[in-house]
């Protein structure tokens, strides 16, 4: 296994993980409507990245799963949403929300750094297909990071000062 395939493999794992986490957070905070809806949209981007990484990976001898990870089961979603509704009138889940947004941000940052590495190795090895993949996916990862950062900036003053 060379550096390129190693990076592809790690990135594939990272995007799959982020897609799952975004969906989990969307369910867990279904009473935080903006987080709920946008996290689902952003999960769609990571799911697409997983698929493209798997397709590209074949050329590097990798057998990566094209399916974007399992979406949370209906039962699990229902349980998380019910739990969110049950505590929707309380301020404490605000802390959990901030922690979840922080984790999403760090997951996305990790992916972003691997996309950076992939773009660099693509240039070093003059691999235009790989460079194309990184250039087209990396901006969305940066947008995921900017979103979590913005959400934390906007809601943390209220959530932390009201405890």
């Amino acid at each position: 296994m060379n550096g390129t395939s190693l990076t592809l493999r790690v990135l594939h794992h990272g995007e799959r993980h982020l897609a799952e986490e975004l969906l989990t957070v969307a369910d867990r905070h279904s009473t935080e409507h903006e987080v709920h809806h946008v996290a689902k949209d952003l999960a769609g981007w990571s799911r697409e990245h997983v698929e493209r990484l798997a397709v590209t990976g074949r050329a590097y001898g990798l057998e990566l799963d094209e399916s974007p990870g399992k979406p949370p089961s209906g039962l699990l979603t229902m349980m998380r949403e019910k739990a969110a509704q049950a505590v929707g009138h309380r301020p404490e889940p605000g802390l959990l929300l901030l922690r979840d947004l922080r984790d999403l941000h760090l997951d996305a940052a990790e992916n972003s750094l691997y996309w950076e590495m992939l773009a660099q190795v693509a240039q070093a090895s003059k691999d235009s297909r790989l460079l194309e993949l990184a250039s087209s996916c990396h901006p969305r990862t940066l947008r995921q990071m900017r979103w979590t950062n913005t959400m934390i900036k906007n809601i943390s003053p209220q959530l932390l000062s009201s405890l």
Partner: peptide, 14 residues
């Protein structure tokens, strides 16, 4: 703060 978020803050008690 936008209106929808204000109602959320009211719902959540802050």
């Amino acid at each position: 703060t936008h209106a929808m978020q204000m109602f959320r803050y009211a719902e959540q008690g802050s």
